[in-house]
Simulated assay, not measured.
Amino acid sequence: MRTTARLAALLACSAAALVAFSPNAHAWGEGDPGKQPAPPANKPSGDAAGNTLTAGATSITVKQVSGGKRGGTSARPVTPVDPNWQPPPCWYEPVATPEELKAGVEKVKKGEGRDAGTIPVTPSLGWGKDLMVDHYEKGKTQSDGADGYKNFNIGKKGMFWRGVMNPDVEDTFETRDCEQLLFWQNANTVPDIPNAPSPEVLASYAYNKIKVPGTKVELKPEGKSTVNLPTWVWLDKGAFEDVKVRAELPGTGIWAETTAKPKSLHLEPGTADAQTFPASGECKVNDDGSIGTPYTKGSSKQNPPCGIAYLRSTNGKPFQLKASITWEITWEGSGDTGGDLPNGTFDGTQGINVQEIQSINR
């Protein structure tokens, strides 16, 4: 159900207060984790012992499996080539066992905690004790037709799920499209509803977690470049290896690995008075993973497969050479799934001084 309809239903339930929460709601409480899948290792701070089932970040775990280590502190996420693409704005996740939900409601009944006794039941709204008891303990059907639960479904195998707003996208109407009330899902199943988690959702979420190394390129001859003489540009095959990130949603069996593979290097000389090699400025990745060809002695008068020839000197103010790496993004995931995501780019600039030697003839 879309946000507007859900809000109307919630506002009709005047028996208890409704409180707005910050985005990215997630909850865990106390309970018997041996009866259900264990809470994720990175569960947010705060639980039923602290006050109620509290709000926090997504449970999706992300790990960089390979690549990107050479980037160090210069490593950054890629920027999608398609400016209109963005990862999924929201999805649903398991957030509490029956025991955890009961423990949270008990805290609300006792008036413990600092958040005025509410439990988040959607990414943006919380319920007070009356609604929680009526719906999740006594099994009362809500005005919007949502079925209630008897004694928090204790004794059944499964978990309560709730929507999560993607923390990596701007808060819009789309991020608030996962407003279904905290609901029950049987163990080892995934809800068949819009915005349910999937391998592709996890792959798209992992897209923004990929960190690739900076793009400072090797230049030869070293030192100052010379007017009309080509400067050779290359990247060693070990500098820009594939980068792979794995994302998993604990308790669901859903996972995805998103891989960024360097595709090409694009050169922008920083001045119109320059010639690029090739003319497009687009240097392809070689079969061995390198870009361009290393400069060797005696090559200064040859045209490089990847490089620049400046046609005038800098006169004390360096040209700003912009080097952009295009990364091809693909993914594979649970259930023998996989596909493509938009290419990404990462660029950097470096100053180039160009000297003029009058005795050189071309």
Rank of each mutant, 00 (worst) to 15 (best):
G348F: 10
D347T: 12
V121H: 02
I352V: 15
G126Y: 10
D340M: 06
G333N: 09
Q36G: 11
G270K: 01
W255Q: 13
I193Q: 08
R312D: 08
Y149S: 06
R70A: 07
K156Q: 04
W184Y: 11
S359H: 10
D192I: 13
P278G: 06
D242W: 05
T54C: 10
T296S: 11
M165G: 07
A12Q: 12
G339K: 06
W234S: 06
T118E: 06
V190A: 10
N188A: 10
R114A: 12
D82H: 10
T345Q: 06
S66H: 00
G270L: 11
Y310V: 15
P262E: 00
V78P: 00
S198Y: 01
L11V: 15
A239M: 11
W234E: 00
A27W: 02
T296M: 04
D82P: 08
K322E: 09
A9K: 02
I360D: 07
A25C: 12
V233S: 04
D147L: 07
K237N: 13
C13S: 05
P318T: 05
T314Y: 02
D115V: 09
G113K: 02
I329E: 05
G56D: 10
E200I: 15
K216E: 14
V201G: 06
N84A: 14
V169C: 10
E112F: 05
C13M: 15
Y205D: 11
G307I: 12
L181A: 14
S359P: 03
A196Y: 04
Q36L: 09
F240T: 01
K220F: 13
L321C: 13
P167M: 06
G68R: 09
A75N: 13
V105I: 15
L181G: 09
G351D: 02
K301F: 07
K317W: 05
A38S: 08
F152D: 03
P213F: 01
L53W: 09
P294R: 03
T58A: 07
T189E: 09
K150L: 00
Y207S: 15
L229M: 15
L267A: 04
F173D: 14
C13T: 08
D177H: 08
G113E: 01
L10F: 08
V164L: 03
T54K: 00
I291H: 00
G68L: 13
D144K: 09
G56I: 07
F160E: 02
K138H: 09
A49T: 14
I352W: 12
C13N: 09
R362H: 09
G126E: 11
A274V: 14
V245K: 00
S204A: 14
T215S: 08
K110D: 10
W234A: 01
G128P: 13
G111R: 01
L202Y: 13
I325S: 00
A279K: 08
H266V: 13
L125R: 03
V121T: 14
K140N: 07
V245Y: 00
M159N: 12
K107T: 15
E248H: 03
K35E: 06
V164R: 02
I193S: 01
K63M: 11
R2L: 14
E328K: 13
T296H: 03
